[in-house]
Amino acid sequence: MMDGVNRLARKVPTWVVYLLGLVPLGYLIWGAVAGGLGPDPVKAIEHALGERGLQFLLASLAVTPLRRLGLNLVRFRRALGLLAFLYVALHLTAWVWLDMGLRFGEMATDLTKRPYIIAGMVGFVVMLPLAATSWNGAIRRMGAVAWNRLHRLAYVAILAGVLHLSLLVKVWTVETLVYVALALGLLAVRLVPKAGRARPAGV
């Protein structure tokens, strides 16, 4: 069965992933135009964009564990990562422009006083070099070892993302707990086996 799924995945063009990844954005824009985002559309836009960014980041980190289980989606990892960056960048833009109204003085104050904003900004900043080097030329110029080392910043990004969400919500919901559990689980699956293999024999 897994072989059949892998064969089907190999036939799917990467642009299909990008196209499907933009569907939630189109739906959100349609909701904003139609006035269907509830009494506080700005917060609804912020929340939806941030949540999609977190979901795509989790999806990109899930590629390696899924490959160990026999499902090879590596060719889609770049698309998932770039979609995550797009939604996180739009989430930040919505906060800066729609929510704060470009009041940079207030934003600077929030960046020093509100832990959830600090965590969110850390997540965005570490995603910048990931997005900037998500092309084949960057791998050739940096070398595979340096490129892989840099892209471990994705671990920092997902931790910052779930911390941002956890600090933002006033009441821990099942949804929040699921996101935190998924993030910690994916990090454990990716990092713990590596630590085990690096341990000297007999230790």
Rank of each mutant, 00 (worst) to 15 (best):
L90F: 05
S134Q: 14
A131F: 13
P115Y: 13
I139H: 04
T64K: 04
N136W: 06
P115H: 15
L83T: 02
L90K: 05
L90I: 12
P129N: 13
I139P: 03
V33T: 13
I139Y: 00
G137C: 09
L22V: 14
L19H: 03
V12K: 07
Q55G: 08
A59T: 05
W135R: 15
G123M: 10
L73Q: 04
L150H: 09
L90H: 07
G36D: 15
L98A: 14
L25N: 08
E106C: 01
A79L: 06
A146D: 13
L28A: 10
Y87D: 05
G81H: 06
G143T: 07
L37E: 02
F56M: 02
V125Q: 02
L66C: 07
L20G: 06
W147V: 00
L82I: 14
F56Q: 04
L128A: 13
R78T: 15
R140G: 00
W97E: 15
R103I: 11
G105K: 03
V126H: 14
A44V: 03
W95K: 07
R140S: 15
V145A: 11
R77P: 04
A62N: 07
R103D: 15
W97K: 11
D99N: 10
A108C: 10
A146T: 15
W135N: 15
K43H: 04
P65R: 09
L20V: 12
S60K: 06
A48V: 06
P24R: 11
G31F: 09
F85H: 01
K11S: 14
A32Y: 12
V122P: 02
T133H: 08
W135Y: 15
L66A: 06
R68Q: 10
R10I: 00
R68F: 02
P115S: 10
K43G: 05
R67F: 01
T93L: 14
G101V: 03
L69R: 07
F85Q: 10
P115D: 04
G81I: 02
R52T: 12
R141E: 10
R75C: 03
T133Q: 09
G81C: 13
K43N: 11
M142N: 01
Y87V: 08
E51L: 12
G21M: 01
F104H: 04
T14P: 04
M107K: 02
L150A: 11
